[in-house]
Nucleic acid binder design. Structure first.
Lengths: 214, 214
DNA sequence: TCAAGCGCTAAGCGCTTGCTCACCCGTGAG
DNA sequence: CTCACGGGTGAGCAAGCGCTTAGCGCTTGA
């Protein structure tokens, strides 16, 4: 095992995908899926983008769907980890929520091609793979819901409908992957900051007095 | 012209599509596109759902893409009208924004199959059709942005980044079409009310004092 | 009564799709 | 040098795709 083999994760975008040809194919697939969608993408297109023949794909992946599954799995793991790390930091619920939202959004904007595939091509997965991925989503949901609950308990937040608001917050963040960079002159950091501010206002208790009934 | 011919629009969901067979096919297409996506749907599937042979589709529509365009056009017109009507009602900016968001969301939830096709299958359209539809979206954007501007001017709202917040509000509303009814026990009205409340909190100025510079 | 015309179908065309298979070539151990 | 072997290619298969066409039966106006 060389030093290069060891430095595979976290640093390089798709470092966890180990034969270089397999990684090139996967990156090409992310590009193509993000651009055209899973069903509109052909295996020839993917192989072509990777500079290989159509048959090369099947040396490293059993089917086209397996490629999508690998992308989806790795992407969801990454998104969930980003959310969890931010949520587990020390601080007030407000600080934790702002951190979670800004970093989650930053990822969805900065890696919007990956995020688009991960978030919007779920239905193209086989039933077994789909349920596996849905479980990861449920955990993302639990992270946000946890912060909201903490904030309500501490009195920092005023959230009448915690599950519904959780859904809205996640939906808001995820949808960044759809529109980002189609228009924009904004950086991922700017969008992250903007969204963190908006979400905080959505849930924060009015600072002055306020007994909750009006 | 009979009375039945006259009562074609607004009341019945797809009343503006006039030969009954064409309407049946279009409704079948909405179902199929919403369920599987445009590219994963076959013309045989659409015709089958409508109880007709595959060839019947081509009597009423020149191509499969024309079907998508018709759905997209009618759907966007409807969504834009709902937004505009709500925005032009009398009232404070807050009331107008709440009305616009709640009715827009109610439509996206209640007709989530149509909305999903309309909002998420844009890329499957031909370039010309796509630009036509994008123009309609720009108008939706202008409606929301207008209300926000009014609210900022009147002092009801405190929105540092009006274009960014407009984008966020629309994104939030539109994404309802993606998740609604996959889980939920919520009614469209409930989601509309919830979202109107969340959006109002996102943009409202803190009531006590505040001279606007900080 | 009957021919015209319209809505619809059965059959199928040409093409593309996901995927396979026989073979090739550079590398490294014996 | 030889030869096995893993990563790669060119050609192509079966199936399914969007779409077309010849023709059928029902309605309709003269």
């Amino acid at each position: 095992m060389t030093a290069a083999d060891d430095m595979t994760c976290e640093d390089v975008p798709w470092g966890e995908v180990s034969p270089e040809a397999a990684r090139k194919l996967l990156i090409a697939a992310v590009e193509a899926f993000a651009e055209r969608g899973y069903h509109a993408t052909t295996t020839r297109d993917i192989a072509g983008r990777a500079g290989m023949s159509p048959a090369a794909l099947y040396i490293h992946y059993k089917t086209k769907e397996e490629l999508l599954h690998r992308i989806s799995r790795i992407g969801h793991d990454r998104a969930l980890r980003i959310l969890s790390v931010a949520a587990e930091r020390e601080g007030t619920p407000g600080e934790r929520l702002a951190g979670a939202v800004s970093s989650f959004v930053r990822w969805h904007a900065g890696r919007h091609d990956t995020a688009r595939v991960v978030q919007y091509e779920l239905d193209a997965l086989s039933p077994e793979h789909r349920t596996e991925i849905v479980e990861l989503r449920r955990r993302s949901d639990a992270v946000i819901r946890g912060i909201l609950r903490d904030g309500v308990e501490s009195g920092d937040f005023d959230v009448p409908d915690v599950p519904g608001t959780t859904l809205a917050v996640l939906s808001l963040c995820v949808d960044v992957a759809r529109w980002f960079n189609t228009r924009g002159h904004r950086t991922p950091d700017e969008v992250g900051e903007l969204y963190a501010g908006l979400v905080l206002r959505m849930v924060s208790a009015r600072s002055s007095s306020g007994d909750g009934r009006d």
